[in-house]
């Protein structure tokens, strides 16, 4: 017999308060994509290796796939949908050709966004360090790093 446990969770998603009923051991990734239909956050490995599902919780990058819903209660969550498409970082990704298949792009932008929020003028090494947990199998990272540096005005 399958039974499902559900609880109500309240948190702030991209600046707006949301309430959602979900099993408490479900991940934020599952709830974003399948309950809230916010599909900007991608599922890659679902085990903390690829960084595709990177979101910000209270401004810090974490894997949505490794975050249980109980760990979201009362917190501030930022996903790719919460970053303005006109943001210099997003424009720099487009203009630098840092996007190919696009699957890793939301995670890379969210991770870079967190870096620029606390360090607006990072060095190339700091950029590479901030995105070391984000895998991209198309670009070879050179254009991604160039995009982040370009957004930082370097």
């Amino acid at each position: 017999m399958v039974h499902r446990i559900e609880r109500e969770f309240s948190f702030v998603l991209n600046g707006k308060p949301v309430k959602v009923r979900a099993p408490p051991a479900y991940s934020l990734l599952e709830v974003l994509r399948y309950e809230l239909r916010m599909t900007g956050t991608k599922e890659g490995c679902a085990r903390g290796d690829c960084g595709e599902c990177t979101v910000l919780i209270d401004g810090e990058p974490v894997h949505a796939c490794l975050t249980a819903m109980t760990q979201v209660e009362g917190r501030r969550v930022t996903t790719i949908e919460g970053i303005d498409p006109g943001h210099p970082l997003v424009r720099a990704f487009v203009e630098s050709g840092a996007v190919q298949c696009g699957h890793c792009t939301p995670g890379l932008i969210v991770a870079s966004y967190a870096l620029l929020s606390r360090n607006p003028r990072p060095t190339e090494e700091e950029v590479r360090d901030a995105i070391r947990g984000n895998l991209c199998r198309c670009t070879g990272y050179a254009k991604v790093v160039a995009a982040v540096l370009r957004a930082a005005g370097a």
Binding site: A25, S27, R47, G48, L66, T70
Partner: peptide, 27 residues
Amino acid sequence: VLAGGTDLLVQMRSGAVQKSDLLDVSG
């Protein structure tokens, strides 16, 4: 006990660790 969840949630979903209720102490 669930703390950061970086290992336990992965192991439970893969079946490597038997599914059980959790005490989330992360807060």
